[in-house]
């Protein structure tokens, strides 16, 4: 799933990284957006958007990271986790939620959510909207959307399925050596 966000997504639009970057503008510190897509600043991955604005998708990705920040986890995992919000069915509510989030950022004296440089300041804005259905939906969705990505498990050391490997009886179920 995560892989799809990388090269193939770019290729399907027939663009090289350089072309992609030349057709996009930076939003916040981490993302660039162009017509119908959002990408990482170095174009290592890109994701098309069809129903919601690319800026809104970039905001959602940043919001996802700020809710469950893991510095060792790349943006593409967060992007995968919120990808589902880019649908005709969800668009209206998502855009309304992002508007709400940006309004809370503005109330705290920022241009918008993505322009806030420090995580601490973004978290303060999230705290202000913590009780809204929008925040709660995004947070709850991340619990499975983020942590149930198999490609993410090795980053945390989790080994997943073990039956096909014969369990751990010969593979270290009791190998702790520091006690």
């Amino acid at each position: 799933m995560t892989q799809q966000l990388k090269e193939p997504a770019l290729k399907s639009r027939g663009m090289t990284r350089r072309q992609l970057l030349s057709r996009s503008v930076a939003v916040g510190a981490s993302f660039v957006v162009g017509a119908g897509f959002v990408a990482s600043g170095n174009a290592a991955w890109a994701m098309e958007t069809t129903a919601i604005k690319p800026e809104s998708m970039a905001t959602l990705i940043q919001m996802a990271r700020d809710i469950y920040p893991h510095d060792q986890v790349g943006d593409e995992f967060y992007a995968t986790a919120v990808k589902g919000y880019d649908s005709a069915e969800n668009a209206e509510q998502v855009e309304a939620g992002i508007t709400e989030l940006n309004a809370a950022a503005a109330a705290a004296g920022h241009a918008d959510y993505l322009s806030i440089g420090w995580e601490e300041d973004r978290v303060a804005v999230l705290k202000a909207i913590e009780g809204t259905p929008f925040f709660q939906t995004v947070r709850a969705g991340l619990v499975t959307g983020l942590y149930n990505q198999k490609a993410l498990w090795p980053i945390f050391g989790y080994e997943g399925e073990s039956f096909s490997l014969g369990g751990y009886i010969e593979r270290g179920f009791d190998d702790i050596n520091w006690l």
């Binding site: 809710i67 469950y68 947070r139 499975t144 983020l146 942590y147 149930n148 498990w153």
Partner: peptide, 19 residues
């Protein structure tokens, strides 16, 4: 496992205290 740990460690919690 990691997926259930994320769901049950402190349901509803978020931010660095959790992560």
């Amino acid at each position: 496992g990691l997926p259930f740990m994320a769901a049950f460690l402190n349901p509803g919690a978020w931010g660095r205290g959790f992560t």
